[in-house]
Each structure stands twice: as C-alpha cells, then as structure tokens.
C-alpha cells in the first residue's frame, strides 16, 4: 500500500437515512429483542427521542464508505486479500431513526510488516454536521507470500 496516503481524507459519503426497518432488521439479525430498537415508547421511557440503534449498527454505513476508498488507485490496496482484524467505536450520541448519516473516511495509518500491510481507517459518522460516532477499522492486507 501507498504509505503517502496516511492522513488522506476522502470526500463525505452520500447521506444514509436511518429507518425504523433498518434498525429493527439489524437488531433482529443480532438476535436482540431489546424493545428500545423497535418500540418508540420503550425508547422514550429511557429518555430517548425515538428508537435507537445497537452499538455496532454504525458498521452499516462505515463499511461501505471505507470500501469505496479501497478502490482508489492511489491507495494501491489489494482488496481481495483483506481481513478485518480490529474494530473500535466511540459514541458521542446514539444513532436514531431519522438521522441522515454522512461518513468521512480518513486513512489513519498504514504499516508494512512481514510482507503484510496493516491499514487503519477512521470513519467519522455525522448527522446534521455533528459527529455522532467515530469508528476505527484495522485491516490486514495479506501479501502475496503470506
């Protein structure tokens, strides 16, 4: 991979509108029946405006935004050999139904060790111009011999 790309920030993604159906399907796929993910009154009872999303829901938008950058020739990344190795989320406020999420992807770090590239992408997820969650994804790109 091209180490000169460290620090590069990609253009923000197109807005993704968070729907009740999307949150409900995500929670159901996790097998999580917490009513705060499907029932606005249950969310309200906990002090939320409306239905909120599970902690790992941001991956719905961050993965796509990040993958779009993989195709940038300047990054020189062999995305057919990518393994997702680490993930971190820092939450500012919950993602809610009605949010219009925009993701900015930043190449935070690239290291090369033993023929493998390790790349950390920081994805900042905003709604209404305010960051709601920041996610870091660390990927290992296996070298030809690894």
């Amino acid at each position: 991979m091209n180490h000169d790309m460290i620090g590069f920030q990609y253009a923000p993604s197109e807005p993704f509108v968070v729907t009740a159906e999307s949150i409900k399907a995500f929670a159901q796929a996790l097998g999580d029946d917490n009513p705060v993910y499907s029932d606005a009154s249950a969310a309200l009872a906990l002090g939320h405006e409306t239905v909120v999303a599970p902690p790992t829901y941001p991956i719905v938008v961050t993965m796509t935004a990040m993958e779009n950058s993989f195709h940038d020739p300047a990054l020189n990344m062999n995305y057919s050999r990518v393994v997702h190795s680490d993930q971190r989320f820092e939450y500012v406020r919950p993602i809610r139904v009605g949010d219009e999420l925009v993701v900015t992807t930043i190449v935070e770090d690239i290291r090369t060790m033993a023929g493998n590239d390790m790349a950390t992408f920081r994805t900042e997820v905003s709604s209404d111009g305010e960051i709601v969650v920041t996610a870091w994804s660390k990927l290992v790109v296996r070298g030809d011999d690894a």
Partner: peptide, 17 residues
C-alpha cells in the same frame, strides 16, 4: 447491553477478531 438495559450507556466498544 442486556445487563444495563439501555444500550446507549455504551460509550466505547472495541474488539480484535
């Protein structure tokens, strides 16, 4: 989140796969 009830209590979450 099952333990705390309100999943938005989680302010940071990380793991290595």
């Amino acid at each position: 989140t099952d333990w705390v009830g309100d999943p938005t209590a989680v302010i940071e979450y990380s793991a290595r796969m």
